[in-house]
Write a protein that binds this DNA or RNA. Structure first.
Lengths: 235, 235
DNA sequence: CGTGTGATTGATCGAGCTCAAGCTCGGTGG
DNA sequence: CCACCGAGCTTGAGCTCGATCAATCACACG
């Protein structure tokens, strides 16, 4: 039962349900809904818009020489991000079907920030979190094996998602994961299957998993080394 | 012939030689010199220090589960970066033998920024550049083949270095490059040798290269793609 | 009930990790 | 001066992993 006319207010309440940066701007925030694969509007305002993701997921991606797409930032609920008109090569799109965001005109935010130290501080905090997200992805991409990458990706998702139940709901397709990790879709599948067969994760649905063994996920995805070593010693 | 007592003034002049953010703080900047592999001092000041790299190179690295080291940010002359005491897992170290930096206490910078819109704007600019550096590295790491990674790394280095001569001086060892790209040292070597043999780059010294064919560097690493492309166009 | 999108599995082959061995070069002690 | 090191760089051989191509399966939708 979704309220139709009052949908925006519904999300506004969700937004205000907990403290967050830019909180005091909630009153002036516009609620925007996007369907899957729909581009997040830049807005006509000078400097673009700040967004706070309420529901769903958003990707920022770039096309690489050769035509492959690379996701360079993944936004989850309560993440802030900037979409500006001078984005160049980048596109910012909704991943999940029902993606809802709060939108703050950039110019207005900056104007207010000049008068308001607290707000300026919050803006710096937001920027710092964006940097942290990107560094996080960097570390994940730096993994050697695919299982390692997928594993640390799942962990990272789990940490960022405030999931009370032990279940982790990926709002992403395998293709999105593949583009985030810079590996092929097939490899993502195989890695997930592998983790599942080793009892480290469990698939509840296709897009919902349960992490059974966190320790195994963070640590080594190398096992063959032992066999190798033994064989060599035996020889 | 290096002036001993006046060395700091020498670098101060280098620093002031061109416009840059925080320029007005140059007067209060301390000049710091670091040897290769020496950690950049956090400083005792609350919130750490901002640094502007004048000469040399600096890496920010983290140790990954399994013991491998991953460089998550590479600083070149005229880059700004923050070293704070709550850095956690990260270490920030000089890469080049003679690395010289200008140091600005973070607390002082922020204090001034509250009074000075221009300065606050410059700080945001600095943060934005740091994010851009990290995203750049992300895109490089997202490459499939090692030649692709090394190639785009060299291009990125070249763009960031204001080299008047066509020569690009890497201040990094092969090991550093390997840790930046998350590949093995041997693979870095082979990639460089490969690029050299194909006439795309030329080695002047071990650590100095000349880029002969920029187009080839950006593009090819793939040759099989043709089959793919045909299929896509046909569709 | 076809159609399309997403997910999975199999087979093949080349790229890159690993181990191993040399190589270059600058410094250090005899 | 030379011998000897050690750090960095390079090359080779073998083997694993993942990209690629191909085929199915699951499922929602018109």
């Amino acid at each position: 039962m979704k309220p139709r006319d009052h949908a925006a207010d519904h999300y506004r309440r969700m937004l205000s349900a907990e403290r967050h940066p830019l909180e005091r701007l909630d009153g002036s925030a516009a609620i925007v809904k996007c369907a899957r694969n729909q581009e997040i509007p830049t807005g006509e305002a000078r400097g673009g818009h700040w967004y706070c993701l309420i529901t769903g997921a958003v990707r920022r991606s770039a096309i690489r020489h050769g035509g492959r797409r690379q996701i360079v930032e993944l936004m989850l609920p309560r993440d802030f991000f900037l979409v500006s008109e001078t984005q160049g090569e980048e596109t910012v799109e909704a991943i999940a079907e029902h993606t809802v965001l709060a939108s703050y005109p950039c110019a207005r935010v900056e104007l207010l920030a000049e008068q308001d130290r607290q707000l300026a501080q919050e803006l710096r905090e937001i920027a710092s979190q964006s940097l942290a997200r990107t560094r996080d992805q960097l570390m994940i991409l730096g993994g050697i094996t695919a299982v390692e990458k997928v594993g640390s990706f799942l962990l990272s998702l789990d940490e960022r998602t405030s999931s009370e139940s032990g279940r982790l709901d990926l709002a992403l397709t395998r293709y999105d994961i593949a583009e985030y990790l810079a590996v092929s879709v097939e490899t993502v599948c195989r890695a997930i299957t592998d983790l599942q067969q080793r009892g480290i994760i469990a698939l509840v649905g296709t897009r919902t998993i349960k992490i059974l063994d966190r320790g195994a996920l963070e640590h080594r995805a190398r096992k063959k080394m032992n066999a190798n070593r033994k064989r060599l010693i035996a020889a």
